[in-house]
Amino acid sequence: MTLIFNSDIYSQLLSYYQPRIIKTEEENEKFLEIVEELLARPNLSPEEDALLELLVKLIEDFEGNHYQLNASTPHSRLLHLMEAKGIEAKDLVGILGSIEIVTQVMSGELEITQEQAEGLGEFFHVEPSLFIYN
């Protein structure tokens, strides 16, 4: 089944949440709360998914510019998303391949492949690039 993107619903979400370039820590915290709220929902609509991707990108840009010393990594992003969604290692076996691989990825011993990143992106409703080192 193909879900259809409804521009009117997306416009309503944009109007309600008012995403914009993040300039302050307070704005960053506000958008982080919205991301966590969206991640807590069991099934996002295509419009909510698009809003989530936009917010994650805005947060990533702000944090990349303001927290260079503690820059997030694909590993830390995965752990954050897992914690926010209440996901356990066993829940990622189907995406990453085995519990051993999941454990190595979670510990930072193993980098995430492009194929795994795409699976994680779909699973968490975020851009796969979040899980790849640039």
Rank of each mutant, 00 (worst) to 15 (best):
P19C: 10
E48P: 10
L69Q: 03
H125E: 12
L44V: 03
E37Q: 14
S107T: 13
I22P: 04
V105Q: 00
N6D: 15
E127M: 05
L51Q: 00
T73C: 00
I95A: 02
I22D: 05
K90L: 15
I34G: 05
M1I: 12
E47T: 00
H66Y: 07
E63Y: 11
G97N: 01
I95P: 02
M82T: 09
L120H: 10
A50V: 09
K85L: 01
S107Y: 05
K23F: 01
E47Y: 07
F5W: 03
A40K: 12
M1N: 11
R77L: 15
E37R: 15
P74F: 10
F5R: 01
V93G: 01
Y133T: 10
E53M: 15
L14N: 12
Y133P: 02
P74M: 04
P42F: 06
L38T: 04
G119R: 12
Q68G: 09
E47R: 08
A40P: 01
P46W: 15
L3C: 00
L81H: 01
E25T: 13
Q68C: 05
H80M: 07
A117E: 07
L96I: 14
L51M: 11
S72R: 11
K85M: 05
E83G: 07
L39P: 00
L120M: 14
S72V: 13
I21T: 08
G121I: 07
N43C: 09
Q12P: 07
V126N: 00
V126I: 06
G108C: 05
N28C: 15
A71Y: 02
N43Q: 15
F131Y: 08
I101M: 01
L69T: 11
A50C: 00
G119I: 05
E27A: 03
R20W: 13
S98W: 05
L38H: 11
L110D: 03
L32A: 09
E111S: 10
Y17D: 08
D49C: 07
L81Q: 05
G121H: 12
M1L: 10
L81G: 01
S76L: 11
L78Q: 09
F123Y: 15
L44D: 08
E88M: 03
Q114T: 13
L39W: 14
S98Y: 02
E109K: 15
R77A: 03
H80I: 10
L13N: 14
I9Y: 08
E26K: 08
I34L: 12
A84I: 13
E88H: 14
E100T: 05
I95C: 00
T24F: 07
L69F: 08
V35L: 04
L13F: 06
S107A: 11
S76T: 13
V105P: 01
E83A: 12
R20F: 03
E111T: 13
E53T: 10
Q116E: 14
Y67G: 12
V35F: 02
G94M: 07
D91S: 04
G121V: 09
L55Y: 15
E48W: 09
R20T: 11
E25Q: 10
R41H: 09
N28E: 15
A40E: 06
S15I: 04
E26G: 09
V105A: 06
V56H: 00
Q116G: 06
L14D: 04
S107P: 02
I4M: 11
N70E: 14
E25L: 03
